[in-house]
Design a protein around this nucleic acid. Sequence first.
DNA 1: ATTGGGGTTGGAAAA
DNA 2: ATTTTCCAACCCCAA
Length: 535
Amino acid sequence: MAVTVHWFRHGLRLHDNPSLLAALEDAEEFYPVFIFDGEVAGTKICGYNRWKFLHECLQDLDNQLKEVGGRLYVFQGDPCEIFSTLFQEWGVKRLCFEQDPEPIWQPRDNAVKKLCEDNDVEWIERISHTLWNPKDVINQNGGSPPVTYMIFRHVTDGLGPPDKPVNDPDFSSVKLPLPEKFQFELPCLEKLAPERVCEEKKINGWIGGEKRGLELFESRIKVEQKAFKAGYCLPNQYQPDLLGPPMSLSPYLRFGCVSVRKFYWKIMEVFNEVSTEEPSYQLIAQLIWREYFYTMSVGNDKYDQMKENPICLNIPWYENETHLKKWQEGETGYPWIDACMKQLKIEGWIHHVSRHAVSCFLTRGDLWISWEEGFKMFLEHLLDADWSICAGNWMWISSSAFERALQCPKCFCPVRYGRRMDPSGAYIRRYLPVLKDMPLRYLFEPWKAPKAVQEKANCIVGKDYPLPIVNHKEASKKNYEMMEEVVSCLKKCAIPHCAPSDESEVRSFVWLPDHLAAGGRGCTANDICDGIAGM
DNA sequence: ATTGGGGTTGGAAAA
DNA sequence: ATTTTCCAACCCCAA
């Protein structure tokens, strides 16, 4: 019988929460704790929508705990200092928390573990943010992160399917002490970081928290079930729904409102109910990508930067503050790009085709600006961005790492790709109202509209809407040549690193130079920017 | 595998 | 009403 604490960081949920169960086991008194330390839950770089989402997650946890007679204890400050006080005050005997695999959290967690050891407090860390323990994947692979995505898949196949979700917590036999003097007011963004409250406090349709996450999950499962029954197949030239209400679970996976293991097993279950075929890997491909980027960041604290990052190509990107600013603000003069950036800033979530478009435009496609800038922008605004997933996706997109480093694909045309993804132009008109009367014909390249058309549409290009900041055709051609040069330099020093076991896989691989292969990898899948992957 | 590019063609919108 | 322009819809090919 003991006083125990569960420390929430990721994993803002009650279901499938093994470390929460560990905290409740044989406990006499139980305290659920969340600590704002200026970094937790991605609050170091955090736009308004992310703050709002996090607050809703915490509010939801507090509401659920109220129903079982408790409250969520919320603190602000350094975890070590706070726990040091709490251990004394509450007489804590056990501290439980979910594993945060990313390197950025290790100093914090190591310090707290040491504090526990110094104070004779048992600490328990459990895996539930990822499908597998990244450390198991690395061990299974012989001590280093898998060199390629294919190998990653192979290794995880070797580990077997991920653990099934654990039972819901039972609070009936523990005491949930209520505070006498402590205030449970969640610190609001306006007070904590007023400079981060942007003017764009728009309603975005996203509501944080486990309750909403599970509702969305259930409705999403029904959609998938229907698709399976109808004979699920991968869409070849599919039309993304850029205008519908948010359906992605990615923000809920990011904050742990919905368990990734629940997601995995439910999809499998639903598919198996409908079909006797072996479930396609594609069903959970995005979850595996998520897993891959988390795992690959383990032990690489330079994962979010180009310099000194063993897996990232050094590419001589331009430094162009003006271009960067225009990209960030959605003022590039390419309506498709600008609409995506406006939606990102206003709503905090954009579809993966939008992510493809703007990330390619910033980096290897048009502006030739480092992916690190895009990483920072996405990490600030995207509800589903997490440090390693965001950085991994940006390296991928910009052809800075993985097999992309040696096989740079064609870039997206900001006009043509937009036309295909948003054929009615409704998406652009929603996020760029200045273009609402521009005829569809010129909507994706309004600078080509004759003066009379511009006047009639009440939008003079160069005045009401910017002229394009670069000539796509010229810029992308030059950038492609520069990328080819980088690649040809690399190929000269490329040496076979390891032979693929399966002959059929050879096609998918490009040999990596040693310095890349050491911590690097290649992969063949595409479509990695889906919200689930959480770029 | 998925894009852009080149070619062609038919048709719609602009002039 | 006629001409011009340009785009969607094909195809195939290259990367």
